[in-house]
Design a protein around this nucleic acid. Structure first.
Lengths: 189, 189
DNA sequence: CGCCGAGTTGAACTGAATCAAGAAACGTGG
DNA sequence: CCACGTTTCTTGATTCAGTTCAACTCGGCG
């Protein structure tokens, strides 16, 4: 799947529909190797990325330590959103956890499309709505769950994360130390 | 300020511009008394609310306890977003902390406007972008700050909250118990 | 074979929760 | 305007979840 198909299926709801109509801005492709950094701290982001294959992580930094805010699997967007939207220095670093193939487009082209295309606007709105919902869920988790509950729910709700991603990264995603996650795992098995 | 002016100024960037053009869907007004609940747990939300005057809180529930996810001040939107967007039962309760005046509109009318109006789409996109950015910041806070840091930063960044909202609600917003906040306050003064 | 990153385990420590009680501020009716 | 009940805020003692730092195990890879 690529961005145009994503728009057709997810945004417009017509699987297998006319692809011409949704080519609202140009997109490009690139490949990145495992551990390669795609978006850097401090950089002003002018691109948004769509993951074709592989797994990526997005992280923020505090006192030299990385805290992971999301893992991205294929057919989802990766971006330093605040930087992309407000053109401020990025507080997010996105990195390939495995070899990845990425499709991307430029903010400039998106903005241009917004001016004339309803589909472009629907697309932008849809993507950010999904992201917002995921962050609402995460806020809910932080406010209501212990580390143990959070991990157990992650196993149920995002098994792909637990299966494919090393435990120290999962810990940093849950907001705890790897040692704590290790103890939690010992406890529940 | 009302929704149309919000669209003109914030979304379109032309303060004092032509107001006719942005009346893309009908809006309504209502008044609610202090402590009145506006959106209920379990309800499917068909309206979005814009706060004209007063202060509101939005909260989720866990084990009979309320956890506050946001305080809303005038000229901002309040909504059970996940419910509004996905038409699922609301996990959010929104309540007036003071007497409030509220402008609102229906999802149905918004959806209709999305089909034909670029401005409507830009509006929907802009609102959710702002909300998403605020949740990203909140995620950042949960991952990187101790309760003490979070409270000190709140004093700096959202003084209106600290001044106008009781401490037990602020504690529930920061994800700690009122007693802990009280101790933190004793410590830093 | 030896190294290195990933994961586990132990012991001491700390930030925040919990439970219980009391003080201060608030508003509402008499 | 005072009295009373309610809500808001504080303080104390104890418990607990998760951190920190250190050491050790295991599996993969050059």
């Amino acid at each position: 799947m690529g961005i145009y198909q994503y728009i057709n299926e997810k945004v417009l709801g017509n699987a297998g529909g006319d692809l011409e109509e949704v080519q609202i801005f140009p997109t490009y492709r690139m490949k990145v190797k495992k551990n390669e950094v795609v978006t850097r701290f401090g950089q002003i982001e002018d691109k948004a990325y769509f993951l074709i294959s592989g797994i990526m992580e997005s992280a923020i930094e505090k006192d030299g330590e990385l805290k992971i805010i999301s893992f991205t699997f294929p057919n989802n967007f990766v971006c330093s959103y605040t930087s992309f939207l407000l053109q401020t220095p990025s507080e997010i670093q996105s990195k390939a956890i495995t070899d990845c193939e990425i499709e991307y487009f430029f903010k400039e082209d998106l903005e241009q499309a917004y001016k004339t295309s309803i589909v472009a606007n629907q697309f932008g709105r849809y993507v950010i709505e999904q992201l917002f919902i995921s962050k609402l869920k995460r806020e809910n988790d932080f406010l209501t769950k212990t580390a143990k509950e959070a991990y157990q729910d992650l196993i149920k709700e995002r098994p792909e994360i637990v299966q494919e991603i090393p435990l120290n990264k999962i810990a940093k995603y849950l907001g705890i130390q790897p040692e704590s996650l290790s103890r939690i795992r010992a406890e529940i098995s």
